[in-house]
Write a protein that binds this DNA or RNA. Structure first.
Lengths: 118, 118
DNA sequence: GGCTAACGTTAGCAGCCACTGACACTCTTT
DNA sequence: AAAGAGTGTCAGTGGCTGCTAACGTTAGCC
């Protein structure tokens, strides 16, 4: 057990931090597509796309189904749950802080106004 | 003009695809912190953290405020709006498809049950 | 069994990225 | 103005990453 436990959030974000991989995800968000069909969409080699698909699969963002010699892929929305939670927490927390600060600043300029009018 | 326009979503995701940068974001989500204070949290050099901060700032995830010789940073939640939209779209779309498929499969196993009981 | 189609996998390479150390800059203090 | 504190910036380096080309593998067909 010398392996450091990999953070699932980290793997998902690294997988998403690549334009082509996001494009692949969008391609298979609704319709199931074969590896060849996906690769045909791009202008890079089929090998490159296969590697991207592997990354997405390992990150839990894709499901694979075999049909004959073909492999059909589809987006797996649950794979996004982790970073959605991360973002929501960050968003809510920071936004709440921002609101609190806005209030404080408003209070401050009220004081200034009072000083000016006083 | 010879520059290809950078996709803001891409920049944000690349910025988030780094554990230390996410840690920095969490650090300044609620409380404003100086560059030195942030750097003191980590065990890498101050230079490295300064570069991470620059990346986050360029991605629109951080605001900078100068106070004397110090520079105070705070998380900027609006910077996350883009990828939140991306994720919500992806989530909704794929989840809707998943539901549709589940219905279809349920219909299929209903047929099987009917066949079995028939 | 032999052949083909549709894939994944490996090796090797170029470019990028996170890191460090040295240097430059900007306030504040005296 | 000189000195020091607090930071950003630059150059260089090791490691990772996305790419291609060649090879290996599995399923269907003759």
């Amino acid at each position: 057990m010398g392996l450091t436990e990999p953070d699932p959030t980290d793997e998902v974000l690294r997988a998403l931090a690549e334009p082509r991989r996001r494009t692949i995800l969008r391609l298979v968000a609704h319709d199931e597509m074969s590896a060849g069909e996906i690769a045909a969409t791009f202008e890079v080699s089929r090998t490159a796309i296969s590697q991207h698909v592997t990354v997405l699969k390992n990150a839990g963002l894709l499901t694979e189904r075999r049909a004959g010699t073909r492999r059909l892929y589809r987006a797996r929305p649950e794979g996004l749950a982790g970073i959605r939670a991360f973002l929501d927490e960050m968003w809510a927390g920071a936004l709440d802080t921002a609101r609190r600060l806005a209030e404080a600043e408003r209070g401050l300029s009220d004081d200034v106004d009072a000083e000016r009018t006083g």
